[in-house]
Write a protein that binds this DNA or RNA. Sequence first.
DNA 1: AAATTTGTTAAAAATTTATTTAACGTTTAG
DNA 2: CTAAACGTTAAATAAATTTTTAACAAATTT
Lengths: 183, 183
Amino acid sequence: MSESTEKSRNKIEDAKDKVIGAIAETMDLYGVTPAAANLYATMYFKDQMTLDEMRTELGMSKPSMSTSVRKLQEIEMVKKTFTRGSRKHTYVAEKNFFRSFMVFYCQMWEREVKMNMEAIEEAQEDFINVIKDSTSTPEVVAEAKKFYDQLEESKTYYHWLEHLVASIRSGKIFEFLPKDQQD
Amino acid sequence: MSESTEKSRNKIEDAKDKVIGAIAETMDLYGVTPAAANLYATMYFKDQMTLDEMRTELGMSKPSMSTSVRKLQEIEMVKKTFTRGSRKHTYVAEKNFFRSFMVFYCQMWEREVKMNMEAIEEAQEDFINVIKDSTSTPEVVAEAKKFYDQLEESKTYYHWLEHLVASIRSGKIFEFLPKDQQD
DNA sequence: AAATTTGTTAAAAATTTATTTAACGTTTAG
DNA sequence: CTAAACGTTAAATAAATTTTTAACAAATTT
């Protein structure tokens, strides 16, 4: 290979690394380990990869790659692909950020809604019992009412979050905010 | 205090604790420490709190509370309030989840857009240089073009994210998804 | 059927993050 | 002006997470 081709290839690698670094750094905030973040960012510029290629490319252990790939599959940022003729599993990165966004946030928000709404429903029942209890003092009843109302009010937010998730899943949000809209 | 009042008070505390636990658990995913998550969830049911009250209520050290409160102020989930006559600083939890949602996600997404767009712009310049370079082989040029186009395509997503942030900040999103809409 | 390849699980080590203890500076009350 | 109260910073400790090494199981090839 000529010297200038070598230089050009290096430039390409450097350019990719800038983007890989940025993606990996922001992915940290998405609850994945540094290894998984680096892996996804690396795969973003690859057609497909095997576990061994990942290990070589990132200089990390195979179990680390195995775990990272699984985590990435969970949030659907990586998919397993069938490659005939090869015993090794091959994986492909989801390159459409819209799809990653949808899966990740919908998953996250639904978990939040479910967990908090369940707690709220239970707590509200408890508050009602205190309010209904004839032995409760007016002071205690007032307090229970106050908290009950606070929780009731907060449900508005969780309902809204559910609607947001639904509109993302259905794609309706893109009628309101088109994908290709210019500044 | 009578025995039954005591029981009612306990019921109220138990009910609150259910919600506190749920909020704290989901907040972990928002990039705050367990201490900060517990603190916010606790403050959610309080009018206002001082550092010493926090320490007593959560059974943690004062510096831990100090750090947690600062982190929560950063994402605007807690505000400092002036209480005349008291030397101690007092803090109030933001109880409107819509506002917390806005501040947190807009902050997060803007950071992501900024960081990744900067890297993309730099990388694209590099790719253009390789493409323009007369000593580059056709093979290398083709690769540079491919990556350039991939990044160009991804910008659609970041632009969309910016529009999403803008529509949340301006409140326009609530025209599309009203806050009080029923299922 | 033995040996090799591939991927996963489990335990150990290493790293990072969170929390506490201790020390410090600033303010206010006595 | 001294002493106590309050909050923060810095260093040390503790806890949790991430990664690796080692062992294992399944599948495939020879």
